[in-house]
Design a protein around this nucleic acid. Structure first.
Lengths: 170, 170
DNA sequence: CGCAATTCAATTGCGTGCAATAGATTTATG
DNA sequence: CATAAATCTATTGCACGCAATTGAATTGCG
């Protein structure tokens, strides 16, 4: 199996902690490149890892994320889902339409506020939660992380995200 | 400014190291969900952070990655670029066509092996390297990572990716 | 040599992501 | 009350990302 190389941008500047420490303070040399490549690759790897597991369920990865959000709290507004997943209506509207066509959710405008659309799970949508229980276990195994690693990694990523989002004015 | 929440899937199971350690070994409870949400969010945050910086250069984020690959080594084959970036021809072909239309690269079939297409930088494509030097510095600042963090995070991500890619047979 | 298998780039089709816009509804303001 | 501003969903257009297919070129094997 052909393995994808990583760190190729750093020809002559390997991602070695000691080597990097030599020119500390020089964050522009490729460090950010290393990070952005790594995140880019890891995110796609995650998507690819989930794909064969989700296929039998008839879900794509983003659809799975939406379903997880609904399993956690049913009847959310499109807006709420968008905020939580970081997606806008341009992405969610067609995605939810597909989930509705698959018979997993229903969309209905809120009688109180006709602007909003509430997304509720159908019985099949709820069933899918049980049927998807193996997915998380599989991925958990595939990541091969112990708890310490996973928690640390998650916190680092969330922190990174927050800093990236908060730095737009500077 | 509305901040996007994170960790919402873990209602009642906060990403707290002590809390999680209580049910160690139970990787299916949401740990993988935490990770996949975090990576998903961080990857998009990166893309969004790069966007305003790359816009003046007329590049999208994936196009920027391709250009970086070419700045590191000019004249690469489409296949090589695909391997290094983890993209296939279905993604690269149209992307490279756009870069060619922008006047940044040229595509020419290899005379030795007519199957292959070599991508070479135009003078403008090379110029862009200098003009984009500020981008890396800006992102480096925006991430707000010190070297230790960045290197550790990168290695964790690469390791995660490798494990995810290597676990398909199991 | 001749033909099948392989390799490589391009194309097609579908599903995101996201900016920009439109349309409808609610809220705020005079 | 009327009108402007804000809110929310849907649509459009463009650019990925990837599976599947096509078509051309090369390699391998008898």
């Amino acid at each position: 199996m052909q393995k994808i190389e990583h760190g190729f941008v750093m020809t002559g500047a390997k991602p070695n902690k000691n080597a990097m420490a030599a020119n500390a303070g020089d964050t522009a040399t490729g460090l950010d490149a290393m990070l952005c490549f790594a995140i880019y690759g890891a995110a796609h790897a995650f998507t690819r890892a989930y794909k064969p597991l989700l296929e039998p369920l008839g879900l794509t990865y983003p659809q799975y994320l939406v379903m997880m959000a609904l399993w956690t709290e049913d009847g959310q507004k499109v807006k709420t889902l968008g905020d939580r997943l970081g997606l806008d209506s341009g992405t969610l509207s067609p995605l939810l339409k597909r989930l509705e066509q698959s018979g997993l959710v229903k969309r209905k405008r809120d009688a109180e506020d006709e602007r909003q659309v509430k997304i509720t799970l159908t019985p099949q949508g709820l069933d899918l939660k049980e049927r998807s229980s193996g997915v998380m276990a599989e991925i958990g195994k595939a990541t091969g992380c112990n708890l310490e690693e996973a928690v640390a990694l998650r916190e680092a990523l969330v922190g990174l995200k927050d800093r990236l989002e908060g730095a737009e004015s500077e």
